[in-house]
Write a protein that binds this DNA or RNA. Structure first.
Lengths: 343, 343
DNA sequence: TTGAAAGCGCTAACAA
DNA sequence: TTGTTAGCGCTTTCAA
C-alpha cells in the first residue's frame, strides 16, 4: 500500500541507507539529496512501516491498559474519562494505547506476562489497585515499567517503591465525615467497596477517624457493595429497614451513591431531608443526579494524564526515584445532604 | 528478556528454522526434536516476539478503535460497554485493540490515514457514524477493512456498500411515539442529537411518523441537544417554559433523558405524572435513575461483539458481500412515563 | 556525502 | 526430517 524505502531508493537512484537518513534529517546528507528524497517520498505518500521500525528499535511505543472488569460486561463512567486522559497523553507523546479487558483472577496475570514477554507494550498503567496486588508484584519483579493509579498495602519495607498517583482517600472521607457530623448527623452508614481493593482501607478508616473524633465510633454501620448502582441500591434498601434508621449514607463511590438515591426515593423518603447521601469520585453523573450529589471530586482526566506522563518518563529510562503523587481530595457540596449550598 | 529462537537453536544444536517449525507443530519435525525444542523453550520461558512475527506476516493483528470525543474530556457509559464487547471479542480471536481518542474534524482523518499507512492496525471499528462520513469514505476508497456501528446517508447507489451493525432507530422511535400517544400524550417534545450524526435522521423521522399516523404532525417540538446530561437538562428547562408545556419529552439518548429528569424535578414537577420522559440506548444508568427510565434498549455489548467478529472476517479476506445487520429495537417500559408497568 | 553489509526476530520456499 | 537461504522494512555501524 504505502511505499517502502526500497521503492524510494529505486526511484531516486540512491541507496536505502541514504534515503533513510535523508528522511530522518541526518546532517551528513546533502541538501539536494534530501530535497529529492523528500519530494519522491511525498509523491509516493510514504509512511514508515511502524512494525519494522519497532522491531528494529526493539520498542513497541505502546502503553498497555488492562481494565479489570466484573463479569464480561463493563460499564463505568469513571474509566471512560480516565481512558481519555491516558489516550490523549499517550498520543501527544507518540505512543499507542493498547486496551484490553480482563477479569481479576488467574488469567489476568497471564495476560500481563504475555504482553510483557512478547514485547507488545513498553509499559503498563495499572488501575484499581488491590491491597495485595499480584500485577504489581509481577511487574516489579520483572523490572518492567508501570505506574499505578492507586497504591497497595505496605507489609514490608520497600513495598511501596513504585510510581503512583492517588487521591488521599482517608482525608477525603474525613472531610465527608466532618461535614455530615457538622450537619448534625449521628447515625452514619457506609457503603463499602470490596475489601480486596486497596482504596477500601483508607476510605473506611478516614470515615472511622472522623467519627471517633466525635466519639461516634460505634455509630457507624458498614455494608459491603460492589461499586455498582445496583449494589448501592440493594445495600441501601437493607439499611433503610434497620431501626433506628441511619440519617446519612456515605457511599465509597458515586455509582453506589446513585443507587442509594434511588432506593431512598423509592421508599418514599426525601434525600437530604430524611436521609443524606454522599458519594466519592465526582463523575459527571454526580452533578446531574436528582438531587445533585455531594461528593469528593477526583480529577480523573488529570490523573490519567499524570500517570501516563510518569510512565513515559520511566520508559525513557530516566533515572531517579519513583514519583509518588498524592492528590488532595476536594469536597464538592451539592444538594444530597440538604440544600445547604455554600456560596 | 525473553529468549529468541536463535538462543533455543544454539542450546538444542538445531537450526533456527527447525526450532521455529517445532514450536509451530509442523508435521515434518520428528517427535524427539519437537520434545527437545519444547522443553528448552519452556525452560527459557520463550515467548515469540510479536513485533517480529507481525513484520514477517505483514499483519498487525490489531484492531483500531478511535473514539470521537467532544472536547478533550470524554465520559460516556455507552462506550465503555461497547469497548468491552469489542475488546473481549478481539482478545478471543487473538487480536489486540488499539484505542485512541480524537475529536471529529480535520485531524481526525489524518489519524486514520496514518494508522492505515503505517500498518498499525488491520482494520477499524467505526462508531458514531455521520450522515456524510469522511472516515468511511476514506476507508472505502483505500479498500481498508472496517465495520461501522451505524450507517451513513445514501446519496448515490452503492453508498451503503459496507458492513455495519445498527439498531433500527426509526422503528425504535415509532415504538416510543405509539406508546406515548397511546398513553394520551398529544404535545410531545423531542431532544434531538446534533444533526450531522446519522442516527439523528431516522430517530426524528420515526417519531414524526408515529405522530403523523395520529394527525399530530404539528404538535412535535424539536430542540437540539449535545447528547450529554447537561445538554438534556438545559434543553428541558427551556421546553418547560413554553406555553402550553409539552406533556412528554422524548430524548434521543439516555444521557439527555437523565438531564431532563433532573430539570423536571428541579422545577417541582413530577416525572411520569406532569411530564413523561423517554430515553434511547438502555445504558445501565437508565435502570437506576429516579424514576427508572422508559427507553429503547440497544444491546451494546452484543453490538461490539458482532461488529468485531465481522471485522475479523473481513480482515481474513473472506470473500462475499458486506454484512449488514439491522437489529430490532426493544422498548423497555419503566416508570418515567407513569407507573404503568406491564407484567 | 554515500553505500554496502549486518542485523532486529521471525517465517517460508527450497534443497538436501 | 533438517538446514540453507532469502526476506519482511527498517536503522546503524563501518568503510569508501
Amino acid at each position: 500500500m504505502s511505499a517502502t524505502l526500497k521503492e524510494i531508493a529505486r526511484r531516486t537512484g540512491k541507496s536505502i541507507t541514504t534515503v533513510s537518513r535523508a528522511l530522518a534529517d541526518y546532517g551528513d546528507v546533502s541538501p539536494e539529496t534530501k530535497a529529492l528524497v523528500r519530494r519522491v517520498a511525498d509523491e509516493l505518500g510514504y509512511t514508515p512501516n511502524l512494525l519494522a521500525q519497532r522491531l528494529q528499535k526493539r520498542r513497541s511505543d505502546t502503553i498497555g491498559l488492562i481494565l479489570p472488569t466484573f463479569g464480561p460486561r463493563f460499564s463505568d463512567p469513571f474509566f471512560s474519562e480516565f481512558l481519555a486522559g491516558v489516550g490523549n497523553t499517550a498520543a501527544e507523546h507518540n505512543y499507542d494505547l493498547l486496551v484490553s479487558t480482563q477479569e481479576p483472577g488467574e488469567r489476568e496475570l497471564q495476560v500481563y506476562r504475555q504482553k510483557v514477554q512478547s514485547r507488545q507494550v513498553d509499559g503498563f498503567v495499572i488501575v484499581r489497585t488491590r491491597r495485595q496486588d499480584a500485577r504489581i508484584a509481577y511487574l516489579r519483579e520483572a523490572a518492567f515499567p508501570f505506574v499505578a493509579f492507586g497504591r497497595t498495602e505496605t507489609t514490608a519495607a520497600g513495598d511501596l517503591d513504585f510510581s503512583f498517583v492517588d487521591v488521599d482517600g482517608a482525608q477525603g472521607m474525613r472531610l465527608i465525615g466532618e461535614y455530615l457530623i457538622g450537619l448534625g448527623h449521628r447515625r452514619i452508614a457506609c457503603l463499602a467497596p470490596p475489601p480486596d481493593l486497596f482504596f477500601a482501607g483508607p476510605r473506611l478508616e478516614g470515615l472511622r477517624q472522623a467519627m471517633e473524633a466525635h466519639n461516634l465510633e460505634d455509630a457507624c454501620q458498614v455494608v459491603l457493595g460492589d461499586l455498582t448502582q445496583k449494589g448501592g441500591y440493594e445495600a441501601t434498601l437493607e439499611l433503610l429497614e434497620r431501626q433506628p434508621r441511619p440519617t446519612a449514607i456515605v457511599a465509597c463511590n458515586d455509582l453506589m451513591a446513585l443507587g442509594a438515591l434511588r432506593a431512598i426515593q423509592e421508599r418514599g423518603l426525601r434525600v437530604g431531608e430524611d436521609v443524606a447521601v454522599t458519594g466519592f469520585d465526582g463523575i459527571p453523573m454526580s452533578e446531574h443526579s436528582h438531587p445533585p450529589l455531594t461528593t469528593i471530586h477526583q480529577p480523573i482526566y488529570q490523573i490519567g494524564k499524570m500517570v501516563t506522563e510518569e510512565l513515559i518518563r520511566l520508559i525513557h529510562g530516566t533515572e531517579g526515584a519513583p514519583r509518588q503523587v498524592m492528590l488532595e481530595p476536594e469536597l464538592v457540596i451539592r444538594q444530597s445532604c440538604g440544600a445547604v449550598v455554600p456560596d
